[in-house]
Amino acid sequence: MLILALFSFACTTSVQSSSSPTSDGKADDDADSADSGGSFVVEQDDGDAGAEGDGGDSSGATSQGPDLPKGASCSTHADCGEGGICEGVGCGEGEGRCVEDPAGRMCTRDLVAYCGCDGKEFKTSGSCPGDRFEYRGPCEPKLADGEPCQDSRQCASGQCLGEGLEGCAPMSQGTCGTADCTADLAPYCSCNGNDFQSSGSCPGRQYAYRGPCEAAE
C-alpha cells in the first residue's frame, strides 16, 4: 500500500508540472505576443510637417499692411452726401475718407486728442474721429527730443524718427529727435489710404507701409 501511495503522488506531481507554464515560458510568450501584435513606426513627411508647423498658406499669399479706410476720397463733409462725414488723417486736397453712415458704426467710448486741420485741438473717440486731422495728439505744446510721436509736426525739432512709425495702430510711434535724412523721395501709403512721398530714411509721419497704396489691392 505504501508503494502504491508513493507511486500515485509521483504521477500527480509530474502531471501538474508539465501542465503549468514556467515564468520563463510566460515571458517568452508575452514577448512573442508583443512582437506579433502589430507594432509599427509612423514615418512623417518632413516637408508637410514643416509647412503645417509654420502655419503658412500653401499658396504663399501674404497680406500687406493694416486695413485701410474704404470710403471715397473727400475734402469736406459736403463731398460725402447727405448724412455722411469726411474724416481721417491728412489735410491735403482729397485726403479725407467718406463715412456714409457714421451713426451705424461701433466706436470706442474713450476721448482722444487730435490736432485738427484748422490747427485747433479737439477730442473724440479714438476709433471714430468724425473729422479730418493733422495727427493724433494735442497741437501744443511741441514735443521735446526723446518723446514719442506720430508726426514730425508734433516735435520741436521738426522730426519724428524711427521704424516704429510703420503701422497705423495708436501705439505705432516714432521718437522726436534730429537726423540727417537721405535726399531721395520714396513712396509711402498713408494711414488714410493716400500716397505720399518723403525721404527713404525719414518718412516723417505714421504710415501703413512703404510703396504706393495700389500695391495692396
Score class of each variant (00 low, 15 high):
Ser125Asn: 08
Arg97Met: 05
Gly81Gln: 05
Cys213Leu: 08
Gly104Trp: 01
Ser199Lys: 13
Glu121Phe: 06
Glu87Tyr: 02
Ala61Trp: 00
Asp151Ala: 05
Phe196Asn: 09
Gly50Arg: 10
Arg136Pro: 12
Cys128Ser: 01
Gly167Arg: 04
Asp29Ser: 15
Phe9Leu: 14
Ser73Leu: 06
Cys86Tyr: 10
Asp57His: 07
Glu87Asn: 03
Cys80Phe: 08
Lys120Pro: 07
Leu143Ala: 15
Cys11Val: 12
Gly96Ser: 06
Ala27Glu: 05
Gln159Met: 14
Thr175Ile: 14
Ile85Thr: 14
Gln159Ser: 09
Ser36Phe: 06
Pro203Thr: 02
Gly158Asp: 07
Gly164Tyr: 01
Arg109Asn: 08
Glu121Thr: 15
Glu95Arg: 07
Val89Phe: 14
Ser8His: 05
Ala34Thr: 12
Gly96Ile: 02
Cys86Trp: 10
Ala215Asn: 15
Gly116Tyr: 02
Glu82Gln: 07
Tyr114His: 06
Asp24Ser: 15
Ala208Gln: 04
Ser8Lys: 05
Tyr114Phe: 11
Gly38Phe: 11
Pro141Ser: 00
Cys149Arg: 08
Ala169Glu: 04
Gly193Trp: 00
Thr175His: 07
Ala144Phe: 04
Val42Gln: 05
Leu4Asn: 06
Asp35Asn: 06
Gly37Lys: 10
Gln150Pro: 06
Cys117Lys: 00
Gln154Lys: 10
Thr108Tyr: 15
Gln197Lys: 07
Ile85Trp: 09
Gly53Ser: 14
Asp180Val: 15
Phe196Lys: 10
Val89His: 11
Ser198Asp: 02
Cys202Asn: 01
Leu185Val: 09
Gly193Phe: 01
Glu95Tyr: 09
Gly158Cys: 03
Leu185Arg: 13
Cys91Arg: 04
Glu52Tyr: 05
Ala179Asp: 09
Pro148Phe: 03
Gly94Ser: 11
Arg132Val: 13
Cys91Asp: 01
Arg109Met: 12
Cys74Glu: 06
Met171Ser: 14
Lys120Asp: 06
Ile85Cys: 11
Ser17Lys: 07
Gly146Leu: 08
Leu4Cys: 09
Phe122Leu: 05
Asp145Phe: 00
Gly50Leu: 11
Ala169Trp: 00
Lys70Met: 13
Ala5Pro: 08
Gly47Met: 05
Lys26Met: 14
Glu100Met: 07
